[in-house]
Design a protein around this nucleic acid. Structure first.
Lengths: 165, 165
DNA sequence: TATTGTTATACTCTATAACTATA
DNA sequence: TATAGTTATAGAGTATAACAATA
């Protein structure tokens, strides 16, 4: 049984040092609140290891990796996987295409469909981003054990898997 | 030991029904990606149970609850607790103050400091929001066991606790 | 000189509707 | 008539710098 080692005080001490810690016990069991808070250091890690060095936003990183792993993926599929609206996705892909890291190709079977693929430059940046994700993931281990990180990942996957409606 | 029951295929089936499931194995162990994905259904639940009925954004809900739990809380403290910049927080509080749900008062001891408190209308809406959070939390149990939800909360708290730098 | 909070402003991201083209 | 994707546009959220008041 993985047991987090934080005390009540630890959890509630969210104000900066030299400040009276805030009581956030009323939000302690609100899972959405905890997810939002956890997203903050997560994004910080991302920008340090991937975002700034490779000039990629989180959603761009996800897109590139999904395109790389899925030959002939369509925009529809990408939009559903990442919960992006069609217009939003179009603009995102426009920017990445202008940058020269990916390309769109009309499907021969259904001319409405656009297949997305990485360019060689896109392959390169995505490979480097995935490489950089390794030390990034190790950084989590500074405050999460290996077992805790695996458990957290597994539970979050279970949550994400059930997002319908 | 809590063990998530998803299969490899289950985890990777993120495209809609009738679509070829996307391979997202390359992102499986990227914790930040899983947090982002989990945030989607989480926000959806929030808007259904709290956001739409009470006309509150997630950050507004968090602010109101923290103000309610912490007498004489300052803007500085709120900003640090929720990682909000001072200008951003000012605008958020302006809007909530105009709406009549909270009020600011200059500290007598340090005239630079603003103390934030709820108005009676703010007390009312916050109480109702916290009440609505109970069925919202129960909704998670549709795809997470009690033990899993508790574990997830605990692990996320541990992550959020260490956000410094 | 440092801190708390505000104002002003520009930028980015997102949401919506209307549209094109294909099926 | 429905679907994939685009364009146009408005709105909301965020980031930055310059500022005022106080310590």
């Amino acid at each position: 049984m993985v047991r987090a080692a934080n005390t009540e005080q630890g959890v509630e001490a969210v104000a900066g040092p030299s400040h009276h810690p805030l009581d956030q016990s009323a939000l302690k069991h609100v899972l959405g609140y905890q997810i939002s808070l956890a997203d903050i250091p997560s994004k910080k890690l991302f920008f340090k290891f991937i975002g700034e060095p490779l000039k990629l936003r989180p959603v761009e990183f996800s897109l590139m990796v999904l395109v790389r792993s899925n030959a002939d993926v369509t925009q529809k599929q990408l939009g559903q996987a990442l919960s992006l609206s069609a217009p939003n996705l179009t603009l995102l892909l426009d920017k990445l295409e202008e940058r020269g890291v990916l390309a769109r190709e009309r499907s021969e079977l259904d001319r409405r469909v656009q297949h997305v693929r990485l360019t060689p430059a896109g392959e390169d940046i995505t490979r480097r981003a995935l490489e950089a994700s390794q030390p990034m993931e190790r950084e989590w281990l500074r405050f999460l054990s290996d077992a805790e990180k695996a458990m957290l990942t597994e539970l979050l996957q279970k949550v994400a898997k059930h997002r319908r409606g």
